[in-house]
Amino acid sequence: MTQSERIKRPEPERDEPIRNPWASDAAGPTDPPGSEAGVDEVIAHAVRLGYRVIGDNIEQGRAAAGRFSQGDYGVEDVPDDLGELAARLLHLGREMSVTAFDVMGAILRDPGLRTAFSRRSQARAGSGGSTGFDAHKPAAKPSRPGASSSDRAKRDLRLTYAFAGGGRADAEPAWLRQPDEMAMPVHAGLHSPAPDAPPLRGITFSAAPDGLGVVARIDIPDGQPPGVYSGAVCDSKSHHVLGVMTITVLR
């Protein structure tokens, strides 16, 4: 280093805190401060039970997301002759899930589906594929250029849109890459090239009603300037881009 050389700061790994509500220990510290002493055990039990429902839901979703991202299976892998189980899956999805990952969690807990998947996995193993339903493989391979939509559907999540609010909008479905690690989709809003147009930030993700993808629910405020809005969808853990949402706000 010479005397006149200007030094630059190192690039930070990130510049935002991780806000995931489940990021901390869901069970809490083993010696929680303060309020524990006066809590009636019966009520505490009920509370724990209630929150375990949420914790289970999240944990199952996370676990499913992790396995899903390993590329061992896709929803479309469910054999056609499992119609009844598929119907049960949809029912479970409606009752239990808010995300595609939760749907996968429900799949994993269904003994019938597990059996079906195991059979298919064994078949795969025989042809050099996966060694089993619960086996973990390295992360999914990146998309190949020119891959067919059928190939793509086996790896990626189909993203559709639902619009709410006073404004109108339109969009074509898109694809989201599977995250490298279990993670949730996050976004930084949809932005317009027009400098005066405020970004669209009221966006939530949920499972598609058919359990085969993700729906982005977007609030279009009344009076939102018309035009094209776009923005990246990232995974909450690595902040890698999973895909791009593009919509058109109509007059």
């Binding site: 509500p21 901390s24 869901a26 809490g28 309020s35």
Partner: peptide, 16 residues
Amino acid sequence: GELLSLVGYTARTIGL
């Protein structure tokens, strides 16, 4: 992971 998650906080809130 000692700091509580929101689920953990919510249970503590009920304790309060």
